[in-house]
Amino acid sequence: MVSVEFKNVNFNIKKEKILNNINLNFEPGKIYGLLGRNGAGKTTLLSLIATYQKVTSGELTVAGENPYENERVLPLVNFFHQSNYNDDTDSIKAFFELRQLYYPDFNMSYAEDLLAEYKISRDKKMSSLSQGQASVIEAIMGLATMAPVVLFDEVTNGMDAPSREKFYKQVLNAKDRENRVIVLSTHMVSEMDYLFDEITIIHHGEVLVNETVDTFLESGYEATGHIEAIKQFSADKNVLHSRTLGTTRAVSILGQITEEEMQKMDELDIRFAPIKLQDLFINMTDDK
């Protein structure tokens, strides 16, 4: 079983701190959501695991070893990001076959099954793929290579809504998922939140949140009711987000709900529901 561990990892480019004191542990069998605003350091963090770059200080291990220039470890990690295949004259089939040469565990029949779901011909040239189709190929390679650590960096960008839905389903049903670490970096938080077992929020190069989705969502709740009742109820609370439709208002509130508050909500005819991951994420990463 392969896990990924960051211990006090720093990454600088010249004098600029890109990642600061990162402590994380990605374990097999879990799907991790890696969230953060643009430029927060998500891609850099993933690229360090894939050894695209070298950590400046601290300890990063994959399968208990330093992955940098490690011939044994590098094939265990697959990092997928938006790539340009405009110059690639190979067909999809030849592209997969090339991958199979270097990754003996690449499951060709699995790849072809996944490809069939998107109705993309395996004889199609890589150079003629649309941006969305290229993303699909990246996603398929990520699942079919069968590497124990799969890192998807905004891989659904460019995919249409049905393709994204298929991808989410395929990730949940990924072969050998119990032995694989899957990390999904995304901006589509509201669409993908049900996929994640744990979430990691990176903000200004630091880990802001690293916990299970359930624990994270317990840090807030959503209350819906008549506008006046909500005003009264939320007057002394930390409201993250508010939506009004006619005389109905829904507010996202930070903080755990108490018995007393439950009673008050009953009295005011206010319904409550778990807070949305996206609302919490937006609030926590808002610098205002």
Binding site: E69, L74, V77, S83, L98, R99, Y102, Y103
Partner: peptide
């Protein structure tokens, strides 16, 4: 090369 798990040294 890197996308095919070939290290810099390789």
């Amino acid at each position: 090369a890197f996308s095919l798990a070939i290290t810099r040294k390789q």
